[in-house]
Design a protein around this nucleic acid. Sequence first.
DNA 1: TTAAAAATACGGTAAATACCGTATTTACAA
DNA 2: TTGTAAATACGGTATTTACCGTATTTTTAA
Lengths: 213, 213
Amino acid sequence: MIKVLVADDHPLMAQGIKNSLATTAEIQVVAIVSNGKEAIDFLEQNKVDVILLDIEMPEINGIDCAKYILKHNISTKVIMLSMYQEKSIVKMLYDVGVNGYLLKTTTSSVLIDAIIEVQKGDKIFEQNFTDSTSSQSKILNTANQNQKIVKELSKREIEVLKELSKGFTNKEIGENLCISPRTVDTHRTNLMKKINVHNVAGLIRFTYEMGLY
Amino acid sequence: MIKVLVADDHPLMAQGIKNSLATTAEIQVVAIVSNGKEAIDFLEQNKVDVILLDIEMPEINGIDCAKYILKHNISTKVIMLSMYQEKSIVKMLYDVGVNGYLLKTTTSSVLIDAIIEVQKGDKIFEQNFTDSTSSQSKILNTANQNQKIVKELSKREIEVLKELSKGFTNKEIGENLCISPRTVDTHRTNLMKKINVHNVAGLIRFTYEMGLY
DNA sequence: TTAAAAATACGGTAAATACCGTATTTACAA
DNA sequence: TTGTAAATACGGTATTTACCGTATTTTTAA
């Protein structure tokens, strides 16, 4: 009997997962929790073989929760569930050591198979990792590193970044923020250095990927 | 007996909805479809009281599907389901005339109540519409209009847009797509005209808001 | 209080962009 | 087949960026 914990803040989805797994005798959903904190609390007091972990959750998100589980040598196998197939995140999670990554568009049979395979010790990823060498670890860090970068940005820099994303020119931003357009340019230059891009396209991409807009 | 059609491309979620509704005797899930096209086909051949319509779906998305249903005077009541509470979209749908809008974070009991209320003729929205005046219709159109714009873009233009979003310069894009940088510039100009922005920032904002990247 | 970080600002220059127009070839649909 | 849209490309120019540096004031933290 494989004991499974479902961590998802969407009751309907969680219910769907539970019911889909109910058809298989060797799998038992022992509990449903709705955020990462509850998941960790549950794992520390109960034996669970496999946790199905939604990425987008309040309190503690699935990614941080997964990291906690893997860091603290909890024996529970981790399968991530997500709406999206952001390559950088998938690769990051792969390198962090989670045991599987499935999209929420997956079917119950795929999910069941995945749970069984993961329990055996295999890794299940809906995406291929044919590129095995350098590029991987490069992309790995992206999601992580970007968060660090955001923390290093000053208030004013973030303000400028947001204005930039709205499509304003240096001159317009200067007017909006009551500073010289040259100052805006300086901020822009510093932002590009910190974010490690070389034009406004890169800045805006960063803004959207980090949800700063 | 309220006949309900579930339109969702996530089998697990659809299953969850079905099972959550199974507890209520007066509600019957008559079918599950996985995109807007299938939903319309089903509605045209079967009597359905309420359709639960996911917004994010392939082929025909939930929004276009809802519009089709309301436009063609199909008697089926429409409840939208979505992961997000994008105000502009909610308002747009409200004005289009859908009967309800629920988040996927909702519980089964809320969903059951909503179906019953909507069947009675009420409207169920998880969001308030306190702001009533001008700005509304302005925001309303944005989501709509942007979709129209995307449809008017040529294949090549979308390619260029994506390259642009990756931060490449005209020269680099020219090399990547094997065309002259001047051609890229032309595409860029045309894109800005169509999208109605006046710099690369606007183009990239559009790319991200429309999920084209 | 003193050093570091942040926010401000400017000068100069090469590169890139935005915007105007025109024009040819290709492809597809009426 | 014939016209329309798409994709291609170029010329010219004003504006804006990107990038280099320096420098002052303000704020914050040690």
